[in-house]
Every structure is written in structure tokens, then in C-alpha cells.
Nucleic acid binder design. Structure first.
Length: 1015
RNA sequence: GGGCGAUUAACUCAGCGGCUAGAGUAUCUCCUUUACACGGAGAGAGUCGGGGGUUCGAAUCCCUCAUCGCCCACCA
């Protein structure tokens, strides 16, 4: 039956066959009521904007490793898949497509019609993405597939918004937002990217007047008497909205200017000169010479509250008017809060860029431009449209994340051992707000630890979160408003489903449920729903809750206390509790596995929301993996054309190959590089790195093929006694057990590269290179062949299990074959009989699974240091003979005759392993002695550790010279280094004694060898 | 401006106080030996970015400089 196995591993056919079985048998599905300690992961939902790239392949491979291992460990394991609607990103790609294909802009469509187009795009890419995840072998519970905008998630969003609204954590604000004038929407702080831009500092002169606006006063720059003061700015077009000029109270000119005004050029607005210590003093007046701002500053700052966040703050402090001089597209406009346009009529309707030029020209023409200096500074740009952000005054919804119950709770959620103290950290007190009541709330641990700092700093400096977006694609804000209607005129249902607030003379009604009657009532009364949608991260922030069924039916129906963040129930702690549900079983999830770029965008919000709504952390660990870059350290991107499509690699190398390579690259650095080359035959991007995985999968396939053939023909007799195992058998089992321990530690610490390496080294080096070759010898021995088959089957079985999480397809297929060849399995079956203290899988339930995906994960058995020491010596002997054969150019097939001199007890072991030595070193052992007086004639002596080997017939004088010279040089160098070390009194006195002894012993051996070589 | 990462063989990376600094790829030699040429046996290849310090001992810890990259803050 092993003849069925092809000579080379064919990934495509195996993947299809195996995937079908997993799917048919619903191997990925779990229920909350299933036995076992819960283990859960929510997938970072990929954006439906595009197909998955290699970064996703890495991310999801690592999650799948964790999931598959947990499942094999008998945990109640679930991996929740899904996708994200990615509001602005998706709307933008669809707008581009529609413009290209239909030549129409979004605004030419009705809202519902355009949303349908986006929906169609989403449907298309959701299928692509889910198909890719399946192709990657991801063992997600597909029955639980979610989308951030499907109905269960929409329900969670409404509930969350309602609870926050009711708790006073959502407010309406006329604030400066990061406005994207191209897509006409507000952006969150972290959606803004900074770019260096070459610009100019302009020095504008403003005439000083008394309060009446008539008489000039003489105070100006650097104290020189003039009727002007000079402000310095890079955003001169916003001067139209200036409502004050500020000076530092420490400025010597401040006293004289107290109570004075300036007449704003062009608009002729009379604005006050105010004092605020935000203003930087120029170097000439005591400012910091190293501060570029102080170098450029005049000491007078134009204050434009509507167009600069800092000016806005100054405006708040001094009760200044806020005059917005721009339309939403960033053109100059008098329709959005600006009436006293003065002489600025010529600027109306101009773009901000054009206005900038015109304003400079005006100042120049009117001799009010004192100077201009080149200046390079960074300017915020939209991460989507890439146009410069405009700080823009608009009405937005805010979530008060600065509240203790949110940011405070997020800090409180940290693993105490990872908190950096003394940075202003103020955790919510134990018990306060009812947080930290859950038994599992021991704190979130970051891997690698350094990212805890990123997280902490973010929350310590957090600002309120603007959650409204002027988009069509997203969760519509569940608030209805009216300016005139009095709320008591409206016939509203019970208080539990409605919350209201008043702001700026407007009535706002928030609805908990999508209650059509209620909405009809409201709309009849003149209320209308807010046109905006919520920031994408609002729904993603709920992901660990919403994918697991939050809000629960009962909770949502009652006027829960949870609105104030009080979570009093502890899952499953009382007999009267309802049966376990997905939420109570799997939240908190076990680990969040993601990239560092979204620690602030996503991780933070999930923690705040989970803490607030559920009173517990959303995940116990956060694992941040490296980012894959191309060979030149650049990000992989479509525009650079340096991306690699996972599906291309799957078809060229196989899924397991891709997964193995990615796993071995998952070190704990920030970035890893993957050289990208273009495959000339397919025209597609690939990377030579994937050959590593392809070769490994093939090696595994072939080693198993050999093992299966041997097992089939050698399993007639069964060993029941430990004593029947050879040293070599015990050696490979010991190596296996150490490998299991290494893998366990590696995975537990999220060091996936170490897991891959441990598997590779064990399987290829120890098992294939050594044990399989040894087994070939043992199979020829009637007394050993049965136990050898048993050991090879046991170790193969264990190896397949150990590697299954990483390379699931090939291991599953081979395990089935192993089952066919020796069906008498299980802990008491043929494989484990006699070996079960040495190679073990977790006992409970093992033997019943017919699929490796649900078979038991290995646990380390007995190790055997004495066998390892013996084999290590034998390996050294073989290596030396092989090297000598190569050095003397002996043909690989030609045997040589050797005499081995092994002092002490080494001779006994060599005699015991004669067959194996002769086979692996292609030699004939003429004799094994403990000492020798006359070396065999015509022989060359080589050394291997404590042994000497005389190889007959090697008489190449030149080769011998070369060899001896090389060895002598090595020894001389090593001896000199050790003598130096031992001559150091400090070393003898302070180094651990065993090291000193080791050095002395090694020195003695090396000196002896050198002496022997010289005679 | 603040923080973080990287700099080790030609390439991609391990190692992070004590083995002659390792692996894979590439290179060179030999081998189509009945698991595997997606293979086997060998070989060559590194003053561990520069400088300073701590230590008996540094690729590994500290300081400093340089180069590349990322994150946060600032956009007078």
C-alpha cells in the first residue's frame, strides 16, 4: 500500500484530499459546551478592499499553529474568522472603480444605490479572502464566519453605542478634526500620516491699533518702534480666520501691548493682543537657540482657532471667536461661519493652494510682507487620499476615551510586570468602577514585551476619539436629531431602549434597537437620522465581543447595569448560571495575533470596549509578529510591484512549504526580509526562500515513505521490553523528547522560528541523516528489526504530530498512511508498546482519533543522556572517517579498512556498533583495540576525540601533509588561546571551577594530539 | 524632539555573558548507494557596523558614533 505514495510530494492532490476530509468531518467546529479548557482566537479581520498578501499568510499561519496545537492538546478550541468592512478604504477603492468603469462620481448616485455597489465589491472580495484562508489551511470555525457589518455585528454596534451614550461617554462636539478635503471626511489621529514638505515661513505685518481701531501704537519686532507687529506663519491663508494675536507674558514687549489690538489686514477685523505662555520666545529675547521654532519666531503668534488645533486650545482659554473661512473642500468660503469678509471677496471660492498665493501677493503689494524664509516641515496627509489634512472645524461625534472607564481601564488591563512606572501611569484603583472583578483578569501580556510600552504610552497620552465619519459605507450612527421638536411631543417606547441628550440647542435621541415604529414616530416628529457612519474601528473594537454573540439576548433585553461598566457576573461560577455560551466560554480569548501598526488603532479599542462592556480583558496575550519586507527592506505593496501572492506560492511550492518558510521567518524582530524575484516562466513574483519549505515537506514525505515500507515488512514481532531497544533506539527517542520540550517552549513564547528550527534539526539531521541510516542496518539484523520498526513508527508518529500545526497537510496524509500500515495504534497498541515511557502522546482519548488534527499532542517522555553521549562519540568517529575519505579522495563506494584505538571503555561501545559504523562510514573495521604498539602497515592515523583511527591504504603523501598542517594550525591556535586563558589569574580565581577544569582537560587533550601529530 | 528595531559568512537569518560563532541558500569537490538529486558525503567562506567602557571572560551588558527602517509627537 505504500506503493501508492508518489516518489515526490505532490502538494496539490494531498491538500485537496485532506481539506475535503477536514471539511466533511467538521474538524474545525467547536461548541461552547464541548469539553476541555477553552482556547480561542479571533482573527484580525482582513479588509475587504483586496485579496490577502504575504503578511496575512504569515499572520494566519501563526494563528493556525496556535489553534491546531491547542486543539491537539484537548482544549475546547475555536478560531473565529471574518472580514472587516474597512469604511473609508473600501469606499475609496469602489469610488475609483466606478469612476474608471462608469465615469461617474459617488455624488452622482443615491446613497442606497452606491452602497449597493460597495456591497457587491464586498461580496466578491469576502469570497476571495475566505477562499485564500482555506487554501492556507486555516482551521477556522467557518460556521461562525462574521463580517463587521452583518446583522449580529450591527446589533452589537447599536448596543455598544447606546450603552456608551447612556453612560455619557459619547458627546457631540464642534471640534477641529483632521479633515480630508478630497474624500470629505474626518479622520482619526492615527489615520493621518506625516510627510516632509518644503515650504516657507512668511512674516506678515499686522498694524497695531487702540481699541477704537484708530490710533497706532509703536511696538514691533525686537522692540523696535513701529506701528506694526509681525507674525510668522506657514499657513498664511488661514489669517482670514485670525481672532487674536498672542504674545508670551514673559516677552518684554507684552506689558506695553496689554489691552491693545491689531487690525487684521484684508478683512480689517479688529482683534485683541492676548498673552499666552504657549507662545515661543524668539532667540533674541531669551528663546532656546536650539529650538528651530525659537529661531524662526517673532514672538507674535497669529491665533486661528478654526484652523489650528493649538490655536483652538488658545481660543478656548481666552474665549476667542472661532471663524471658519473654508468650505469642506478646503476652498475659501464665507458660507461656513465667516461673515466679516472685509476686502477678502477676491479670495472667495479659491482653493487653499490658490488662496495661499493670493494672500502672499496681497501682503507684498501692500508692503506688509516683511520676509519669507524657506522651511522644511512635516504636514499631515490622509492615509487614504494622500492629500494634506486640513484642521477643520466641524460637528462630530466623540467617544470620551479619556475617561477612566476606557483609557484608564485599558491601562489597568496590563500585566503589572510589563508596566513602566514613573511615566504618569495611573491605574484605576482595584475594584473601582467594578473592573478587575473577573477571575481571568490577570492582565494582558505582550510578546515581545517591548510593545507593552507602545500600548502604555498611547493610553497615557490619549485624546478623545472622533468616531463619526462622513462616509456612506459603514454603520450609520443610531442617533436622530431635531432642532425644534420638544422631546415630550414624541411618543417614545420604554426608557430602556431610548436615551437622549441635548447639545447646542439640538435634541439627540439614541435608539438601542432598530425599532421601525419608533423611528417612524421620530421622523414624523421632525427628527432625522444622523447621516454619518461610525469609524471602522468602532465595530472592529467590538470584534472579540460581537463574534462571540455579544450582546446576549437576555442582556440586551434588560436595562443592564452594564451601561455603567459594572459587570458583576462571573462566568460559570454558580450552579444557577445558564449553560455556557460562546461569550462566557471564549471571552477573554487566549491571544491576539497581529502586526504592530494597529496596536493603537485596534488593540487599544478592543481592550477599552471589552473592559467596559464585559468587565474583563478581551485577550490574555498580545503577540506582535514581524512585518515582511522585500529584499531591500521596503514594504511590500501593489504600487512597488514587489508583493508576493500567497496563492502563487501555494501553487508553485505547496501550502505546507509556504507555511514552513513563513514560520521559520517569524523571529521576534520588527521586520524580516524576503528577497523577491520574478519567475521568468510564470511572470509572477516568488522568493527562493520558499524552497526551504518545499524541500522540507518533500524530505518528510520521503522519509515517511521509507519508514512505512519498512514498518510494513518488519512489524511481525512486537517488543514488549525496554531492554530490547538498542542504544541507538534510545538515542533517537531521547532526541525526540528533547525536541518536544523545545517546541513546547518555543510556541508558548510565540517564538515560531525556534519551533520550525527545532523540528527541522530534529527531523532532518537526527532522524533522517542518522536514525534512518542506522535503521537500515538494524533492519538487517533479525533480532533488531522488529523493535526498529516499532521505534521508527513511534518516532515518525510523534514527529508528524509535533509538526502538524505548522505543516498540516503533509502530516495528516502521512498519518493516515501510518494508520493503514499499523492499525493497532494507541497507547496500548503496537507503536507505543514498550516505548510508552519514552515517546508519548497525551494519554486521554488517544488512539480514538483517525485524524491527526484531533490526535493528541506529544508530551515529552524519558530522555537518555548516556545514549546521547555514546551516539555523539560514534558520530564523531564516523565524521572523521568520512572527512578523511574525502580528503584522500577515496570513492564513496570504495570501502576502507580501519583499526580503531579506543582507550577506556570506548572500545566496548564501538564493538557493539560495528555494523552501524561500517555502514555509515563505508569501512571495514579490522580491529578495535584499547592500545596499539605497531600501527597497521601502509596506514594513516587520524584522531576522533579520544580515539585514534588507522585507515589502511591511504598513502597520499600530499593529502596527508595538507591535512596534518591544517590540523596542527588549528591545534596551535586553540592551545595558545587556552594557555592564555589559564595564565590569567583572574580566570582561575573567579571563573566557575568546572569551566576551569574543562579548559585544562581540553588543553591537555589538544597538546597530546599535537604531540602525536608531530612524531 | 521622544521611543523602538536592525547592522554576524556572498544572500536571508539564528545565537544575546563562558563550547573552535551556527543554520538554510549560493559556491567548490565527490557520489544517479533500492526514502528523497526538492537527495547524500565533504570543503571553503565571518578582526559578529566603528570607537570606548564594565568583566577573569563580550557578538552577547553599558556609553558613543554611523547607516538603514518603523512608531509616536510637533505641523509659528
Amino acid at each position: 500500500m505504500t506503493a501508492e505514495l508518489a516518489k515526490a510530494y505532490d502538494p496539490a492532490s494531498v491538500q485537496d484530499e485532506v481539506a475535503k476530509v477536514w471539511d466533511d468531518e467538521k474538524c474545525f467546529h467547536a461548541e461552547p459546551t464541548d469539553p476541555g479548557e477553552p482556547y480561542s482566537i479571533v482573527i484580525p479581520p482582513p479588509n475587504v478592499t483586496a485579496a490577502l498578501h504575504l503578511g496575512h499568510a504569515l499572520n494566519n499561519t501563526l494563528q493556525d499553529i496556535l489553534i491546531r496545537r491547542a486543539r491537539m492538546q484537548g482544549k475546547n478550541t475555536v478560531w473565529l474568522p471574518g472580514t472587516d468592512h474597512a469604511g473609508i478604504a473600501t469606499q475609496t477603492v469602489v469610488e475609483k472603480r466606478v469612476l474608471k468603469e462608469e465615469g461617474k462620481r459617488r455624488t452622482e448616485f443615491e446613497r442606497d444605490d452606491f452602497v449597493k455597489k460597495i456591497q457587491a465589491w464586498k461580496d466578491e472580495y469576502e469570497q476571495v479572502i475566505l477562499g485564500q484562508l482555506k487554501a492556507m489551511g486555516c482551521s477556522c470555525d467557518w460556521d461562525r464566519t462574521a463580517f463587521t457589518m452583518d446583522e449580529p455585528r450591527a446589533k452589537a454596534v447599536r448596543e455598544a453605542f447606546f450603552q456608551l451614550f447612556k453612560a455619557g461617554l459619547i458627546y457631540r462636539g464642534k471640534r477641529l478634526v483632521n479633515w480630508d478635503p478630497a474624500t470629505l471626511t474626518a479622520l482619526a489621529d492615527d489615520e493621518v500620516e506625516n510627510e516632509e514638505v518644503d515650504g516657507f515661513f512668511y512674516y506678515l505685518k499686522y498694524p497695531v491699533v487702540s481699541s477704537t481701531g484708530i490710533s497706532p501704537v509703536n511696538h514691533g519686532r525686537d522692540g523696535h518702534a513701529t506701528e506694526y507687529i509681525t507674525v510668522a506663519t506657514t499657513r498664511h491663508e488661514t489669517m482670514l480666520g485670525d481672532t487674536a494675536v498672542a504674545i508670551n507674558p514673559k516677552d518684554p514687549r507684552a506689558a506695553a501691548l496689554k489691552g491693545k489690538f491689531v487690525r487684521l489686514p484684508i478683512v480689517n477685523r479688529i482683534i485683541p493682543i492676548i498673552e499666552d505662555d504657549y507662545v515661543v520666545l524668539p532667540v533674541s529675547l531669551g528663546g532656546d537657540p536650539a529650538d528651530t521654532k525659537a529661531q524662526m519666531a517673532t514672538g507674535f503668534l497669529k491665533v486661528t482657532p478654526a484652523h489650528d488645533p493649538n490655536d483652538y486650545d488658545i481660543g478656548q482659554r481666552h474665549n476667542l471667536d472661532i471663524i471658519n473661512v473654508m468650505a469642506p473642500d478646503a476652498s475659501i468660503s464665507d458660507k461656513h461661519g465667516w461673515s466679516d469678509i472685509g476686502d477678502a471677496g477676491f479670495l472667495l471660492g479659491q482653493s487653499r493652494e490658490e488662496a495661499r498665493k493670493l494672500v502672499v501677493k496681497w501682503f507684498k503689494d501692500n508692503a506688509l510682507l516683511e520676509d519669507q524664509k524657506p522651511y522644511r516641515h512635516s504636514v499631515g496627509h490622509s492615509y487614504r487620499s494622500h492629500v494634506a489634512i486640513e484642521p477643520y472645524l466641524s460637528d462630530q461625534w466623540y467617544c470620551k476615551v479619556t475617561d477612566k472607564r476606557l483609557a484608564g481601564a485599558a491601562l489597568d488591563a496590563m500585566n503589572p510586570s510589563q508596566i513602566s512606572r514613573g511615566t504618569g501611569f495611573q491605574p484605576v484603583a482595584e475594584g473601582e468602577q467594578g473592573l478587575k472583578t473577573h477571575a481571568t483578569n490577570t492582565g494582558i501580556t505582550f510578546y515581545p514585551e517591548r510593545y507593552a510600552k507602545t500600548y502604555q504610552t498611547w493610553h497615557e497620552n490619549i485624546r478623545d476619539w472622533c468616531i463619526s465619519r462622513q462616509l456612506w459605507w459603514g454603520h450609520r450612527i443610531p442617533v436622530w436629531s431635531s432642532s425644534a421638536t420638544r422631546i415630550d411631543f414624541v411618543n417614545l417606547p420604554a426608557n430602556a431602549t431610548v436615551a437622549s441628550m441635548e447639545s447646542d440647542g439640538m435634541q439627540y435621541i439614541c435608539l438601542r434597537e432598530n425599532d421601525t415604529d419608533c423611528i417612524a414616530n421620530l421622523e414624523r416628529a421632525g427628527f432625522s437620522q444622523d447621516p454619518d457612519v461610525l469609524d471602522t474601528w468602532f465595530s472592529s473594537g467590538l470584534w472579540p465581543l460581537s463574534t462571540l454573540g455579544w450582546p446576549l439576548a437576555a442582556e440586551a433585553a434588560s436595562p443592564a447595569d452594564s451601561a455603567s461598566g459594572l459587570a458583576t457576573s462571573v462566568a460559570g461560577d454558580a450552579s444557577s448560571d445558564p449553560p455556557p455560551n460562546a461569550l462566557s466560554t471564549w471571552n477573554p480569548t487566549s491571544v491576539l495575533c497581529t502586526a504592530r501598526e494597529i496596536i493603537t488603532l485596534w488593540v487599544s479599542r478592543m481592550v477599552m470596549f471589552n473592559q467596559f462592556f464585559q468587565g474583563q480583558i478581551p485577550f490574555k496575550d498580545v503577540f506582535i509578529h514581524a512585518m515582511i519586507q522585500d529584499g531591500d527592506g521596503r514594504k511590500m505593496s501593489k504600487s512597488l510591484g514587489n508583493g508576493v501572492d500567497p496563492l502563487d506560492i501555494i501553487s508553485s511550492h505547496g501550502t505546507d512549504a509556504m507555511r514552513f518558510t513563513l514560520t521559520s521567518m517569524a523571529t521576534n524582530t520588527q521586520d524580516v526580509r524576503m528577497p523577491v524575484v520574478r519567475d521568468e516562466t510564470t511572470g509572477k513574483n516568488t522568493s527562493p526562500k520558499f524552497d526551504l519549505g518545499r524541500n522540507f515537506a518533500n524530505k518528510m514525505w520521503n522519509a515517511a515513505r521509507f519508514a512505512l515500507m519498512q514498518i510494513e515488512s518488519n512489524q511481525s514481532q512486537v517488543a514488549n521490553s525496554e531492554s530490547q531497544f538498542t542504544t541507538l533506539d534510545r538515542w533517537i527517542m531521547s532526541r525526540f523528547n528533547k525536541t518536544v520540550t523545545e517546541c513546547d517552549e518555543a510556541i508558548s513564547n510565540y517564538r515560531f522560528d525556534q519551533y520550525a528550527r527545532a523540528c527541522y534539526d530534529f527531523f532532518w539531521r537526527d532522524f533522517c541523516d542518522w536514525y534512518v541510516e542506522i535503521a537500515k542496518v538494524q533492519f538487517k539484523d533479525e533480532t533488531k528489526k522488529s523493535t526498529t520498526a516499532q521505534v521508527i513508527a513511534t518516532v515518525l508518529d510523534g514527529s508528524l504530530r509535533l509538526m502538524h500545526p505548522m505543516i498540516p497537510f503533509v502530516t495528516e496524509k502521512l498519518w493516515w498512511k501510518l494508520n493503514e500500515v499499523c492499525p493497532d495504534r494507541g497507547i496500548d497498541g503496537w507503536i507505543n508498546r514498550g516505548t510508552n515511557s519514552r515517546v508519548r502522546a497525551q494519554v486521554d482519548g488517544d488512539g480514538n482519533s483517525t485524524r491527526i488534527i484531533t490526535a493528541q499532542w506529544p508530551i515529552p517522555g524519558q530522555t537518555d543522556d548516556s545514549a546521547e553521549a555514546i551516539v555523539s562519540n560514534l558520530q564523531e568517529l564516523i565524521a572523521q572517517i568520512r572527512t578523511a575519505r574525502n580528503d584522500y579522495k577515496v570513492s564513496p563506494k570504495q570501502s576502507v579498512t580501519v583499526t580503531i584505538v579506543a582507550p577506556d571503555c570506548g572500545a566496548e561501545q564501538i564493538n557493539l556498533h560495528r555494523d552501524m559504523l561500517e555502514s555509515l562510514a563505508t569501512c571495514k573495521i579490522a580491529g578495535v583495540e584499547t592500545a596499539i604498539t605497531t600501527p597497521p602497515v601502509n596506514s594513516t592515523k587520524i584522531t576522533a576525540g579520544a580515539c585514534e583511527i588507522y585507515i589502511e591504504g591511504l598513502v597520499d603523501e600530499a593529502a596527508e601533509q595538507l591535512r596534518n598542517t591544517k590540523r596542527r594550525d588549528e591545534l596551535t591556535k586553540a592551545i595558545a588561546a587556552k594557555k592564555g586563558r589559564l595564565a590569567n589569574a583572574g580566570y582561575i580565581a573567579k571563573a566557575p571551577p568546572h569551566l576551569v577544569k574543562e579548559t585544562q582537560d581540553q588543553l591537555a587533550a589538544e597538546e597530546a594530539e599535537l604531540k602525536a601529530l608531530s612524531v
